[in-house]
Each structure stands twice: as C-alpha cells, then as structure tokens.
C-alpha cells in the first residue's frame, strides 16, 4: 500500500493544475473544466483521507460526501454551460477576455 503522502501530493497537484487553468486559460469552457478538475482533486482527497482516519477500514461518510459533491459539480457545470451558451449568443466568442464590458 502506498503511503498517504503520495495520494495527497497527487490531489494537491491536481488542485494546482485546476487553479493554473482557471487563472491562465481564456476559453470559457476550459474554465469550467478547470473547476471540474479542482472538484475531482477535492473528492480524491476526501476518499484518500477516509481510509486513513480509521485504521484498517474505509469510513463511509467521505464516500457519501464524494458522491454528493460529484452530483453538485455536475449541476454547477450544467448551469455554467447554459450560461456559456447564452454568452456565446451575445458575444459571438468563447474568449473570456471579451466579457469585460461591465467595467466600462
């Protein structure tokens, strides 16, 4: 069995990849994908920690949490895609830099 730190490092790296993507990417759909990556990093962290909190068994609470948070993530992405669709109709582009009219 691999030690805990490997898994946690993996989830932190996933989270940072998502954050990088969120900050530097310009495509609106990619930003939603970045959110999804971050969400998965968190779920992975939960599952990994659940098997170490109680010695020798996996705690079910974290699994319930992970399943619900996958569902919630799906909702957020669905709503995000709807809004992206409308934004595409209004702006004619998926470039997030174009969404700056409110500042003026």
């Amino acid at each position: 069995m691999l030690p805990l730190s490997y898994y946690m490092a993996c989830s932190v790296i996933l989270f940072l990849i998502g954050l990088y993507c969120l900050i530097f990417k310009r495509n609106m759909i990619r930003l939603l994908m970045a959110l999804e990556i971050m969400m998965n990093a968190v779920n992975l962290n939960f599952i990994v920690l659940s098997s170490y909190v109680v010695e020798g068994s996996v705690h079910p609470l974290a699994h319930v949490f992970a399943i619900l948070s996958i569902g919630i993530g799906g909702c957020i992405i669905a709503l995000g895609l709807v809004i992206t669709l409308y934004a595409y109709r209004h702006y004619g582009t998926l470039d997030v830099r174009e969404l700056r009219r409110l500042k003026h």
Binding site: L19, M28, L35, I76, H90
Partner: peptide, 17 residues
C-alpha cells in the same frame, strides 16, 4: 441581456472556485 450573462458567468466561476 448581455450584462446579466456576463455577471453571472463571472460570479459562477469565482464563487465555485
């Protein structure tokens, strides 16, 4: 209206993050 969509997208990304 474009402003609602823009504001909502911005809010969605920031708040979800």
């Amino acid at each position: 209206r474009w402003e609602s969509i823009e504001a909502s997208y911005k809010y969605l990304i920031m708040s979800s993050a």
